[in-house]
Amino acid sequence: MRILHTVAQYHPETGGMQEVVQQLSERLVRGGHEVTVATARVAGRSVSHNGVRIEEFDVRGNEVNGYRGEVQRYRDFLLGSRFDVVTSFAAQQWATDLALPMLDRIAGKKVFVPTGFSALHDRRYAAYFARMPGYLKRYDINVFLSDDYRDIRFARDNGVTNTVLIPNGAAEDEFLAPPALDIRKALGIPAGHRLILSVGSHTGLKGHAEAIEIFNRARLTDTTFLMIGNSYWNGCGKTCALKSALYNRRPAWKKSGKKLLVVSLDREATVAAYLAADLFLFPSRVECSPIVLYECLASRTPFLTSDAGNAAEIIRWSGAGVLLPTDVSPSGFSRTRVAASAELLETTANDHPRLERMAACGYSAWHERFTWEKIALQYERLYRDLTGNPD
């Protein structure tokens, strides 16, 4: 099959959506299919990566905020191309929004992966979402990552029936291999320290401020909190680094053996950190279906997470995590209650039999249902069923 995946950003850019599309695209190529990704231009990027052809467009923005750049060139590309399947990943961004009014004129079967509708309750997007049910019905199929999140509930409330559930996952080739390095030695973490991990870019929306304060209040000893995240324009990276310097000098922390490390690591080192961690702390403010939780399953790392995205559903599916006490605003943003979350962190971190049970349950669920290998096969079967193409 000839497959087109459209997404606002792609490798070497990092992030949840980029990871999803890269994992699916490369595995479909390995399955013998011709895959193209249409995405934003990145200086110095090759025209292909691991067999995936990359078509770049200098475009930014979305329907509500307006577009900038090669808008007409992208439209012409969609209308002039002949793919068997065209899949739009994520709403509220140019690569999908520019396609929506032209769906009937784009060749091939059309698939939409909405990934959460994060602006559903934003009044500026009212007209956008008023039109969305019609667009959803014009796609041949809509793939939802959750059976109980606001995007699938929106679809059901508006009579959309052309839907299927395919979750996110984590990769066997990353998490079944021996770690690339001894992360404790590399970062100077004492061998006897408990290791609590957080992974997420410094966007300001991953709950980093809450995570640091939860760790600060939790009465833990001989514990390192490792926060891994890429810098982000106008994000919280500098603030987190400053807090690390200040908190690590506190006499109370020195006495109890607490340490906060805020670092940016490459992928191999990040996977090594997952495999070395005792517990994952994730008080994120907004998510759809957080890949980091699936990576916890794959690495046998129990997790504490805010009630953001479909985190509660992932807990039901896996038995590997616990919800932090969370308040969810009418607009859909989550905020963990710090004091209660610190108490939960204390009790969970010190309950070793429970941690072992959660780790085992999560790994078993991942191996059975949530590897990218299995998920890519679900997409491949979906594409075959849509096109009637056995090849």
Results as ranks from 00 to 15, higher is better:
Ser48Gln: 14
Thr39Val: 10
Thr39Ala: 10
Asn62Trp: 04
Tyr67Arg: 10
Ser46Met: 01
Arg68Pro: 00
Val35Trp: 12
Arg45Thr: 08
Glu70Phe: 06
Ala40Tyr: 07
Gly51Phe: 01
Ser48Glu: 15
Arg60Tyr: 02
Arg60Trp: 02
Gly51Tyr: 00
Val71Glu: 10
Gly51Ala: 08
Glu63Val: 05
Val52Ser: 04
Gly51Leu: 02
Gly44Asn: 02
Gly66Asn: 04
Arg41Gly: 00
Gly66Leu: 02
His49Pro: 00
Gly51Thr: 01
Val59Thr: 08
Asn50Cys: 03
Asn50Lys: 15
Glu34Ala: 13
Ser48Phe: 04
Val52Asn: 03
Val64Cys: 07
Arg45Pro: 06
Tyr74Thr: 11
Ala38Val: 08
Val42His: 10
Val71Phe: 03
Arg68Leu: 06
Asn50Phe: 00
Glu63Arg: 15
Val35Ser: 11
Val52Asp: 02
Arg73Met: 00
Thr36Tyr: 07
Asn50Trp: 01
Gly44Asp: 06
Arg41His: 08
Val59Met: 08
Glu63Ile: 06
His33Ala: 11
Ser46Lys: 02
Arg73Ala: 13
Ala38Cys: 05
Glu56Lys: 05
Val47Met: 13
Val71Thr: 14
Val71Ile: 14
Arg68Lys: 12
Ala40Phe: 02
Val52Arg: 05
Asn65Ala: 13
Asn50Ile: 00
Arg53Cys: 00
Glu56Tyr: 15
Val71Lys: 14
Glu34Met: 02
Glu56Trp: 01
Ala40Asp: 13
Arg75Thr: 13
Gly44Ala: 05
Asn62Leu: 08
Val47Asn: 14
Asn62Phe: 06
Val52Gln: 01
Arg68Asn: 07
Glu34Ile: 01
Thr39Met: 10
Glu70Tyr: 03
Asn65Val: 09
Tyr67Cys: 01
His49Asp: 02
Val37Cys: 09
Gly51Cys: 04
Glu63Thr: 10
Asn62Glu: 15
Thr39His: 11
Val71Asn: 06
Ala38Tyr: 03
Arg41Asp: 06
Phe57Glu: 12
Ala40Asn: 12
Ala38Gln: 10
Thr39Arg: 10
Ser46Phe: 00
Asn65Met: 07
Glu55Cys: 11
Ser48Cys: 07
Asn65Ile: 00
Ser48Trp: 06
Glu70Arg: 14
Thr39Gly: 03
His49Val: 05
Thr39Gln: 03
Thr39Ser: 15
Gly69Ser: 09
Ser46Asn: 09
Ser46Leu: 00
Ser46Ile: 00
Ser48Pro: 02
Val37Ile: 08
Ala38Arg: 07
Glu55Gln: 15
Asp58Ala: 12
Val47Arg: 15
Tyr67His: 05
Asp58Arg: 15
Glu34Val: 08
Val35Tyr: 03
Ala38Thr: 08
Arg68Trp: 03
Val35Gln: 14
Phe57Ile: 09
Glu63Cys: 10
Val47Phe: 08
Glu55Val: 11
Asn62Lys: 08
Arg68His: 07
